[in-house]
Computed example of a mutant assay.
Amino acid sequence: MAEKFIVKERSTLLDFLINHLTGWSKKTVKQRLQGSSIAVNGEISTKYDFPLNVNDVVEVGVVKKASTQGQTLHKLEIIYQDKDIIAINKPAGLLSVGNTTESKQHALAILRNQLSRAKKQVKLWPVHRLDRDTSGILLFATSKEMRESVMDKWSIAEKIYLAIVEGYPKEKKGTITQPLRADEREYRMHIGKHPDAKAAVTHYTVKQTTPERALLEVKIETGRQHQIRAHLAWLGHSILGDERYGTKGEKMGLHAKKLTIIHPVNKKPLSFEVDAPRDFYALLN
């Protein structure tokens, strides 16, 4: 059962939780927020800086099933599998990896259960992650060694996404090189020069436009957290449905379309590609 608190003075959600959940580490509080187990006035919130007003009701321990259909998922689409690596088509709305020990509704747990047998439990290691609301190619390794081998060549892996954005860029093609700095308190990326900022490179091409929106093909040379979301927002064309960097919506317009890696064993290039679902393209209309 969820534990309820009544807000007595204005605050942000993270500060409120840290002050009221005595005995919880700051890391655990953040994990609960990211794991969608916190609600404000009945609505799930994952934003550290979510504003709280007097008499708001904060619930801790809310259970939210992650599925594009609102039902528990038991099977994922496998687009490639060998004894070393497995690539799946992750649906939007599903975590890549669990943020809490209680959560079993994430891609790693579902795939592990899907592939395991009574006398043979499968172990998997995530090679990378996709944001909860991003669909597309997600890669796992069958051992730590295979994971490290893929990651050793990750800087030269080709990573291509589709993004539906508000408005449309004036230039048909462009490159964004703004450095990014992670803000753990707000769980977002800040853009611009800073001693802690890291280089980030995002290329985009306009593939289709409508009067108010555009479909972009995006290629990233680096893989910073929220890189595409933050860079496109900086450009002035935030991704549709991206509440953190733009405007809230029912679905976020970001899909991991293609991934090319160096295979950890035979050392040859290996490509995976999966098109976005219909409801993704429907966002253009």
Rank of each mutant, 00 (worst) to 15 (best):
residue 46 T to M: 08
residue 38 I to G: 06
residue 4 K to M: 10
residue 4 K to V: 07
residue 27 K to T: 15
residue 47 K to V: 02
residue 27 K to I: 13
residue 33 L to C: 06
residue 12 T to Q: 11
residue 5 F to S: 07
residue 27 K to C: 07
residue 59 E to P: 04
residue 16 F to I: 08
residue 14 L to T: 11
residue 25 S to R: 11
residue 53 N to E: 09
residue 39 A to T: 12
residue 4 K to C: 06
residue 58 V to S: 00
residue 31 Q to S: 14
residue 10 R to M: 11
residue 39 A to K: 10
residue 9 E to W: 09
residue 65 K to Y: 02
residue 10 R to G: 08
residue 32 R to G: 05
residue 49 D to S: 10
residue 36 S to Y: 12
residue 34 Q to E: 15
residue 32 R to A: 08
residue 11 S to F: 06
residue 23 G to A: 14
residue 54 V to Q: 04
residue 58 V to H: 02
residue 22 T to A: 15
residue 9 E to M: 10
residue 48 Y to R: 05
residue 21 L to W: 10
residue 28 T to M: 13
residue 25 S to Y: 10
residue 47 K to S: 07
residue 26 K to E: 10
residue 42 G to Q: 09
residue 50 F to K: 06
residue 43 E to M: 10
residue 64 K to P: 00
residue 5 F to I: 07
residue 7 V to W: 10
residue 11 S to R: 09
residue 45 S to A: 12
residue 65 K to A: 05
residue 53 N to M: 06
residue 35 G to A: 15
residue 22 T to R: 15
residue 18 I to W: 08
residue 43 E to G: 00
residue 7 V to I: 11
residue 16 F to Y: 13
residue 28 T to S: 14
residue 25 S to F: 09
residue 4 K to R: 14
residue 52 L to K: 02
residue 55 N to S: 06
residue 4 K to H: 12
residue 44 I to W: 04
residue 23 G to S: 14
residue 30 K to A: 14
residue 19 N to L: 13
residue 50 F to N: 05
residue 48 Y to D: 08
residue 50 F to C: 02
residue 39 A to H: 07
residue 38 I to E: 05
residue 21 L to V: 11
residue 48 Y to T: 08
residue 36 S to C: 13
residue 44 I to A: 03
residue 21 L to R: 10
residue 27 K to Q: 15
residue 41 N to I: 07
residue 52 L to H: 03
residue 21 L to C: 13
residue 38 I to Y: 04
residue 20 H to Q: 15
residue 45 S to I: 12
residue 56 D to N: 02
residue 34 Q to H: 11
residue 58 V to Y: 04
residue 32 R to F: 14
residue 58 V to K: 04
residue 14 L to G: 02
residue 63 V to P: 03
residue 13 L to H: 09
residue 7 V to S: 07
residue 26 K to G: 00
residue 55 N to E: 03
residue 59 E to I: 01
residue 41 N to Y: 07
residue 24 W to F: 15
residue 9 E to H: 14
residue 60 V to F: 03
residue 31 Q to A: 14
residue 64 K to S: 08
residue 32 R to M: 11
residue 47 K to R: 12
residue 28 T to Q: 14
residue 37 S to C: 09
residue 48 Y to L: 05
residue 19 N to H: 12
residue 33 L to Q: 00
residue 63 V to C: 01
residue 27 K to S: 15
residue 57 V to R: 10
residue 30 K to C: 07
residue 13 L to P: 06
residue 32 R to C: 06
residue 5 F to Q: 05
residue 53 N to Y: 04
residue 64 K to A: 06
residue 18 I to D: 08
residue 55 N to A: 05
residue 25 S to E: 11
residue 59 E to L: 03
residue 35 G to M: 09
residue 51 P to H: 01
residue 32 R to K: 09
residue 46 T to E: 10
